[in-house]
């Protein structure tokens, strides 16, 4: 496996999936972010706070302008992770083709790195989080994410070494048990929610779907590019 090919396949598929996610988000998620910011601004004004509307508009232009590039960078980031796991784990992944294997891995990563974390610390639109607690919330989020990610990784590494046969059902149960303990042990998000729960619920469902879509696209694009560039390269080696 050639370094350049692996890097190119990984970064390119991440950038593509991230850009598509950003475009989908502009249509599906952005309206909720806008209405949450409108609510937040209204609340600030009615509580007597000085809101610099020009500055707010200026920030919103910057924030929306960043959306596509931000999506691409987000995609490259998770694409890099995906590429590493796929390169080492490809043989062990179920599926007849690289596309199927990549799609399977994408599903696992969405579940372990997004859905599991969202159950404990769900996504929030603007106007919910308190800037004062950001570092605390970040540590909780990263801690819970790390527990889910490393537990899954450890179990995946053990899966091949352990000869348990039909007892392999234990693996998902161990994962579930550890996540239940972590769920109970870690403190909840400390911020009080001051806007309508409807908006928040819709935001959470829509973003969970768009992030799921992102992982699916990443898997398909990555699997196709892998076939095109890396499988071909390996066939060349095999016939020499």
């Amino acid at each position: 496996m050639n370094s350049i090919n692996l890097l190119a396949v990984t970064i390119f598929s991440g950038a593509i999936a991230g850009t598509i996610l950003a475009i989908i988000n502009l249509g599906l998620v952005e309206p909720y972010i806008d209405s949450a910011i409108a609510l937040e601004t209204q609340r600030k004004i009615s509580s007597g706070e000085n809101v610099d509307m020009a500055e707010l508009v200026h920030y919103r232009i910057w924030q929306k302008g960043g959306a596509i590039a931000a999506g691409a960078v987000y995609g490259i980031s998770l694409g890099a992770l995906f590429g590493i796991v796929f390169a080492y784990g490809r043989k062990a992944l179920p599926g007849d083709s690289n596309k199927q294997k990549a799609l399977f891995l994408a599903g696992i990563l969405w579940f372990v790195l997004y859905l599991m974390v969202a159950i404990k610390y769900p996504a929030n639109p603007p106007a919910v989080g308190d800037p004062e607690t950001i570092y605390y919330r970040q540590s909780l989020y990263v801690g819970y994410l790390a527990i889910s990610g490393f537990t899954a990784l450890g179990l995946a590494l053990a899966w091949k070494r352990v000869q348990l046969g039909s007892k392999k059902i234990l693996f998902p149960l161990i994962y579930a048990a550890i996540m239940i303990v972590a769920y109970v042990a870690l403190p909840p998000n400390p911020d009080k929610i001051g806007i309508s729960m409807d908006l928040i619920h819709t935001f959470r469902v829509v973003t969970a779907l768009t992030i799921g879509l992102f992982w699916g696209i990443l898997g398909i694009v990555f699997g196709s590019l892998w076939d095109r560039f890396i499988s071909r390269e390996e066939q060349k080696y095999a016939t020499v």
């Binding site: 950003a22 972010i33 973003t207």
Partner: peptide
């Protein structure tokens, strides 16, 4: 906006 949409605090 990406941060909110992807579930980061």
């Amino acid at each position: 906006d990406m941060r909110h949409a992807s579930g980061f605090p």
